[in-house]
Computed example of a mutant assay.
Amino acid sequence: MTKAKRTNEERIVARIARVRASYEKARSDKSKSADYKYLESVLAAHDYFDERNLLDSLTEIAPCALMTSVRSGQHPIRTIIDSSCADVDPRTKSRWTRALQFAILRSIAPDDLIRFLRATMALRDALTWRAR
């Protein structure tokens, strides 16, 4: 029996469901490392969509299939975050989005994200302390 090809919408919804499951696990754990694991899954989803040229489809599919609003010019990372966690304050979502955008610019793999974020935050904290 031949397996039918999945549509772009089915691929996007399935991947977002995996990210939501990661968020639910992180929310029940309530530790900082759990948040890192969630962000790792967001970055992995972004890489998945990017490799399969689904980023444009994500912004088209998100409003109807995922019940997520998408603003004009919104980064796909923010769309993934908005569609996977609704009960996080916008300020935190913005910080997560900026951190992951920075990781994408640096070509960080999802497996290396936790180490990268910890190193980046340590550097930021040191520079902030030095500026005081």
Rank of each mutant, 00 (worst) to 15 (best):
A62M: 10
S41A: 09
A131W: 05
C85R: 07
R15I: 02
A103Y: 07
S83N: 01
I80M: 11
D87M: 02
D29S: 12
L123K: 08
S72E: 09
L55S: 11
K25Y: 13
T59R: 08
L123Y: 07
R6D: 07
I108Y: 00
F116I: 01
P110I: 00
T68N: 05
A21F: 13
Y38I: 02
Y23P: 00
L100D: 00
P76K: 02
K93R: 13
I61Y: 03
E24F: 15
K37H: 11
R106F: 04
D47P: 02
R124K: 05
S31K: 10
A17T: 07
D35M: 06
S72C: 13
I61F: 03
L105S: 12
A119M: 09
D35G: 13
Y36D: 06
Y38V: 00
P63A: 10
T79Q: 01
I81T: 06
D29R: 13
T128Y: 00
L117Y: 01
L117G: 01
L43H: 03
K3Q: 15
T120S: 07
I12K: 03
W129S: 13
S72D: 13
I12C: 02
M67A: 15
S22V: 06
S41F: 10
T120Q: 08
T97I: 02
R124A: 06
V70F: 00
M1N: 07
G73L: 14
R132Y: 14
V88D: 08
D56C: 08
V13W: 12
A119G: 10
P76L: 09
S83H: 06
L54Y: 09
A62T: 05
S84D: 01
L43P: 01
S28T: 09
D112Y: 05
A103D: 07
S107Y: 08
A4S: 13
D112E: 07
Q74L: 00
R115S: 14
R98V: 04
V19H: 02
A126L: 13
A34N: 06
K3F: 14
A122Y: 05
Q101L: 11
S33W: 11
L54H: 02
S33G: 12
A17C: 06
K30W: 14
R6K: 14
E40H: 03
I81R: 11
R27A: 06
